[in-house]
Design a protein around this nucleic acid. Structure first.
Lengths: 226, 226
DNA sequence: TAGATTGTTAATCGATTAACAATC
DNA sequence: TAGATTGTTAATCGATTAACAATC
């Protein structure tokens, strides 16, 4: 992540990540579950009870001593804190393999994110259709990348998902930010330079595998020649 | 991330993430760059020079006072520390939109990760071909998910990339771990329970957007009715 | 030599964990 | 009432930042 720290509440980034975990678990619960304790919630997401209480206390009071947290209220409080109590419109830029997958990603829609349009620099892709796979996702026509800024401005789009090559990521970012985008989810392995009011979250997929193999340690050394 | 902390070096997770950033930047540099200072490297990835020196000092001595770090040596040291000085074989499980995109992801191959086989539970997908898009990625035939454990055992595969529905993620994980997998990159929004020797890195794509909108703060409030 | 820059130690800062009084 | 569990304060732990002597 980068920039724009703590514009509102002073909740730390590690804590925000955990709030998403709590929300995900609570959403998966039956609506017949009325309350949940910090201990149970912690166990479900792999954290201690003290950590859970500390995190949730930042959002207000959703718990009762001796009883636990009211699950429905807590879901509402978490969504409100995260900003997903309202839907967010987004655009997708870059319709390669990854872009196409993201456009069809059901997980976005159910969490309040809607991809309103998709753009690509490749003329061969213009006019093709995306996101037809899962039900409830209406098809999206791919438009030329040059028309992205106008679309952003016309529809007051604030979020963009970038699945473009590393070489073009900065140029695309500059154009989108100038048009009004202030939140970017970037999959290119480059650091995007943006004005301080813009929030960037970059995910380097290869780096995610690197973190795993780091933890695994060196592969069993090939037999050392004596 | 979870479990298996510090099996070898005592490098913290935040630091490991930064090591990938440094490596990515150094790889993007011309081979004519022979040395780079902590200040320059930090500026490139958006960190302070003290942070860079602290991180790199953990790997050994790749720098000279008054000169900087030897770029080529540092790339080697970073790869060695991360574990990507050797190639890693992986399998992909789940050949939906996201799975297909990951199979074709050029970024994995160039960083030392090779997807050797793909598996899916859907009979309609068996035998189809994946990963033909970028050059240098040989095509992969999709196999029935039941044959994944045997493949893992036969080829001594340690890494698996999971792009399966949340409901089946745990069952798939259990089968793969039993067959020998000890590193999992999981895209399903569920916490995987694994033995302590197994390393899991879970990426919830919706949560990545949530982190952005949290930082953006509440959307401009609709005009309050007076 | 003088300027630049490392590696490391010390100081600061922030986050996690533990403890416990309040209370349902 | 007794047991459970919150919200919060204090204690611990770890990570980041600053400073500086060593040295190229």
């Amino acid at each position: 992540m980068s920039t724009a720290r703590g514009r509102h509440e002073g909740i730390s980034d590690p804590s925000v990540r955990r709030l998403s975990l709590y929300l995900r678990h609570l959403e998966s619960l039956s609506s017949r579950v009325e309350t949940i304790s910090s201990r149970a919630l912690g166990a479900a997401v792999g954290l201690g009870e003290a950590q859970v209480r500390k995190d949730l206390a930042q959002l207000g009071s959703f718990g009762s001593p001796g009883v636990g947290y009211r699950a429905a209220d807590l879901v509402g409080g978490l969504r409100r804190a995260l900003g997903t109590d309202q839907d967010w419109d987004a655009i997708l830029v870059g319709v390669g393999n990854l872009g196409r997958a993201l456009a069809s990603h059901g997980g976005f829609v159910s969490k309040g994110f809607r991809i309103r349009a998709a753009f690509d620099a490749d003329p061969a892709k213009i006019g093709t259709t995306l996101g037809t796979a899962p039900p409830s996702v209406e098809p999206i026509f791919v438009q030329p990348i040059e028309s992205a800024p106008a679309f952003v401005a016309a529809h007051a789009i604030r979020l963009a998902i970038l699945a473009v090559p590393a070489e073009s990521a900065q140029a695309v970012t500059d154009a989108l930010v100038a048009a009004g985008v202030d939140g970017l989810l970037n999959f290119a392995p480059v650091r995007l330079v943006v004005p301080s009011h813009v929030v960037v979250n970059s995910i380097d997929l290869a780096a995610q595998l690197e973190r795993i193999v780091f933890e695994l340690g060196p592969k069993a050394a090939d037999a050392e020649p004596a």
